[in-house]
Amino acid sequence: MKCRQFSIMRALFPGALLFAVVLHAMDPVLEITQPKHKAVVHDEALVTVVVAPQHEGVHSVMMTSDTNETVTFNIKSTQSHYCHTFTLHLGENNISIFALRDGNVMKALTRQIFVTSKVDKAYRYAPKQYQRSFFHTDAQEKVCSKCHNMSVNETPGVAFEDVSKSNCFACHVKINFKKYAHAPSVNWLCTRCHSGKAGDFNEDDVNRTKFLVPDPIGPVCLKCHEKKKKLWKNKRYHHEPADSGRCNKCHNPHASNNFNYLRKPVWELCTGCHKDKVDGAHVVKTFGRTMHPTHKVKDPSRKDNRELNCVSCHNPHVSNAPFMLQSDSLMSLCSRCHKK
């Protein structure tokens, strides 16, 4: 009897041992609720990381990004989730998350996030293994709603007297930390664009997030920029992005360090697509020894000291003249600067 029992024990032991080892390996210690691994971030180079320590022994959690943006949370018994919004750079970002106990690392995790750019061809598309994920779904908001008010408290058509009262403000405030900010963005009228409706190009994403922006965004922009609508309607030539309603290709609808909320300075922005113009061999190359400058000089047609750039001669949206010139004929364009 004894012998038989022992044999059973002997048979069970390795199994139990294996189970314990597996259990230890599976022991979460720290769980990252957001973002998913290999996630793609569009437009704004911001991502919010949400972590939930699962083990009593975790005293603090440290998060670090590539750019050495570091944040440390001391774990309290009352709070289950901890979050921080990182500023990222274009391309692949690594965010490391450490669960610490008395300064010793209990567990280290990493999240790889890819930031795409609409105008930078190198970062136009994320590598295959990366997938787009959305934050604002009902299931995920449940976690946040323990601390944050996740409802929309915006009165349609009325801006906040005190913008910090917007429920979006606390998490997304970094969006506007730039030199120029677009009025709806800086006044936190988010749902005017983030209506949850889809456009022709992103119909598949309809129910994946609450605050979807229609793509193309053009019709939404022209709701406010009414005059442009009339102005552009009857012109002969249209720049493709403007015509297809992808205003946000060149303009950042939230904020930018460049004038007119452009994603890059004008010359860089234009040459991002029109690469053949980069070498400067542009306009009247044959006539003189020096070529016509396309940037880095003052614009003589303007009173203020603005730099000459593509937009000095070309209209980025619409034109009646070929080459999308600013004035109706070539001669009148040249005579803007070359007087006499």
Binding site: G157, V158, A159, F160, P184, K223, C224
Partner: peptide, 14 residues
């Protein structure tokens, strides 16, 4: 004004 109307949106002047 406390709010100015710009293209149908009321913005506070603060």
């Amino acid at each position: 004004r406390d709010y100015t109307d710009f293209n149908g949106v009321k913005f506070p002047l603060r």
